[in-house]
Write a protein that binds this DNA or RNA. Structure first.
Lengths: 151, 151
DNA sequence: TTTATTGCAAAACCTTTGCATGTAT
DNA sequence: ATACATGCAAAGGTTTTGCAATAAA
């Protein structure tokens, strides 16, 4: 729900110059119905908008956005990184092995125990990576894994 | 417990032929003081024993061992897979970002909650991946940290 | 103008694969 | 003897990097 003015302002506030590739990548994340996108996803989506933005630039922009705190990166078992808008609230992920659906969740109990475990072993906890994998019960998914969703 | 007889028997019981590369890789995991090894680690360790075992073979053997249930594979943030002996008991990992130390832990509470979260979202939980990252308090590790002037 | 950013292609990584040779059973 | 395993080199997929051209400030 952000116009280009706001997007540009968001960019400026991170100290990054406002350029077409950066605006478009940010806009894509803001507007996409799919929250989680890989570099390739972003690259192809931009191509479909007839934007000639190189894959290398996409990677650079994604990395810069991650460092600027605009995006969060996750490494699921797919072997490639996926990015999502960083809206401040930490969460972990639950993924469907069948249809690729991604559910976000936060569990205070798990967070607490992680902290306790680190402390118990004499570690200062810095970050963690948690992903659950399973099969969702949606009819569409259980029945046919044929389709692979693309935003 | 880890003489060649036993190792060979372990191999046979998986249906895999007993070959030098397989014996040596298994032996390495049994004898190594480092539980968690990457393909490259294994490759180099074997080289140091003057064994001419190709990297491709190492990858093939590791994959076969994983499928046979002899090894477990983890994908930490390093970007490469690490393998460890599968001793049957599930555990997750706590890693030191500084020195690379790996601590294994199991927490029934976390396991329970993961199950509950999956169920709540209508998922049949299949597997999960959990890794905690932090800084260990070991002097040796702290020292490195200080020397590098980053904290 | 000055400095940062882009695009392209090439390289860097980790991992897998094709194929001819070699080995276990 | 046969089927499977190995080594090498080449290729695969994802991500990074060098560099000249380009665009933002």
């Amino acid at each position: 729900m952000s116009d280009n003015q706001t997007l540009a302002a968001d960019l400026k506030s991170t100290g990054l110059k406002v350029t077409v590739p950066r605006l478009k990548v940010l806009e894509l994340f803001e507007q996409s119905s799919t929250r989680h996108l890989s570099a390739e996803d972003v690259y192809k989506a931009l191509l479909h908008e007839d934007l000639d933005i190189g894959l290398a630039t996409v990677y650079r922009v994604l990395t810069q956005f991650e460092q600027a705190g605009l995006l969060r990166r996750s490494n699921f078992e797919s072997g490639k990184s996926v990015f999502e808008l960083n809206e401040g609230s930490h969460h972990d992920h639950l993924l469907c092995l069948e249809c690729g659906k991604v559910v976000e969740f936060f569990d205070a109990g798990i967070e607490e125990r992680q902290q306790a475990i680190a402390t118990k072993h004499g570690f200062a906890l810095q970050e963690h990576s948690l992903a659950l994998y399973g099969h969702c019960q949606v009819a569409d998914c259980e029945g046919k894994r044929a389709r692979r969703g693309r935003g």
